[in-house]
Simulated scan of single mutants.
Amino acid sequence: MAPDTQDQQLLDPVDRAIIEALQVSPRATWTAVGEVVGVDPVTVARRWTRLSESGVAWVTATGAAAPDGGGAAALVDIAVASEHLDAAARHIAADPYVFTLERATGAHALTAIVGAPDMSRLVGQSLERIERTPGVRAVEIHLVTRIFLEASRWRMRGLTPAQSSRLKELAPAPPARPGRGAPPDEVVMGILAADGRASGTDIAAALGTSVHTARRRLDRVLASGRLVFRCDVAQPFTGWPVCATFRATVAPARAGAIAQTLSSLPEIRMCAACTGPHNIQISVWLRSVDDVHRLESLLAERLPDLHIADRVIVLRQYKASGRILDASGRATPVLPTAPTPSETPPE
């Protein structure tokens, strides 16, 4: 969906630069962002408050991958009866393991990206929950075997390479790591999942503790390495309002080299290897529907051994980057709650 004129004015060059600065360094200080962008820190903070409170941009924290490579993810196609579509989408989006949920063209009404700490929870708490949702007629599951390019690496192109480098130089040193065996602070981690830029003062207000205590707890979480921070932006406000997915086949030995070429193209958001008849899935953001054919022609020219078998266009995003979206594509304050194995889907 393309934004209206008023919405287009939300992202002027300074807004775009601030968003990209937080894509590069999600917890950068406003002083550092202001130095790089060329505006004072108070202006940066005020603009970010407007962007985040309106649901146009947000910073979140998610669990870091385990050192042993643990974790499981799947690309899921969901066939839903039309009369149940919206209710089914709301129910599925409420699962915190559902990272992205979209309505798309093609044989399946909904497509999702689902990730969990392990295969047991992926299947038992998310995939089975999706299958039990009223109105769901069929589910096709394609396990992700490798992620070549993550969507978090996509940039607004609001900064120069020199500005991005300077921002990294200004990044604060991480706190000292906590002692081995220190228990995870799940409460603080939950606050950061909702607002990845929450400060010690914010956490103190939420928990009713002193600022000193809150900052100490925050530092322990930041030092633990258990969280990955990212800044996302509502797609309709980026200037790239069309989302499409290409499903392709490539010889396994060529997958890495092809993914490297794909990562150099500004339209490419995500590239993953998966199980199923087509072993590569590519997510792209485009400026118009016509660009689907232009990009496909470009890929055929540059990568003749990448065989695109299917392409679908997203009609609506119900959830993106872990955030539930409204009909205009803005992030809402609603946070998904963890499902339990015995949960019964609503009728």
Rank of each mutant, 00 (worst) to 15 (best):
Q163D: 09
W48F: 04
T213M: 02
E83Y: 12
A89K: 02
A74P: 02
D305M: 06
E267T: 11
T238L: 05
S52R: 15
T209K: 05
T275M: 12
P3W: 03
E347M: 11
V44M: 08
I113A: 13
L10R: 14
A194S: 14
F237P: 03
G322D: 00
V37G: 01
R197P: 06
A93M: 07
D195E: 12
L298E: 13
R177H: 14
D202E: 04
S263G: 13
V24D: 00
R155Y: 08
T238E: 11
L207F: 00
I282S: 04
T133C: 06
V312G: 03
W285K: 01
I282E: 03
P252W: 00
R146M: 10
A57P: 02
A61F: 07
A259K: 03
Q6R: 15
H307R: 12
P266E: 02
D305L: 05
H91L: 06
S288C: 10
G329C: 01
L306S: 07
T29N: 07
K319G: 01
V139H: 06
L265K: 08
I191V: 15
A87E: 08
E186V: 15
F229C: 00
W48A: 10
A151N: 10
G124K: 04
T245K: 09
E140L: 11
G208Y: 07
S54H: 15
T344Q: 12
E102G: 04
V284W: 01
D15N: 08
D202H: 12
P345E: 06
E296D: 11
V314T: 13
G115H: 10
K168I: 13
P236W: 05
V98N: 02
G135T: 04
I280M: 15
A327P: 01
I141S: 08
L218G: 00
R153F: 09
L51Y: 06
D77A: 13
I203A: 10
P67Q: 09
T60E: 03
R177D: 01
T261W: 11
E150H: 13
P252G: 03
A205Q: 14
K168T: 14
A93N: 08
A272G: 06
R46V: 13
T213A: 11
A300I: 11
G158P: 02
G63T: 11
A162H: 13
S199N: 04
I308F: 10
I203K: 02
F237D: 01
L149Q: 04
A248T: 01
G276T: 04
G190H: 09
T111C: 00
F99S: 10
A234M: 08
R157K: 09
H84G: 05
G190C: 07
L11D: 02
V42T: 14
G71D: 00
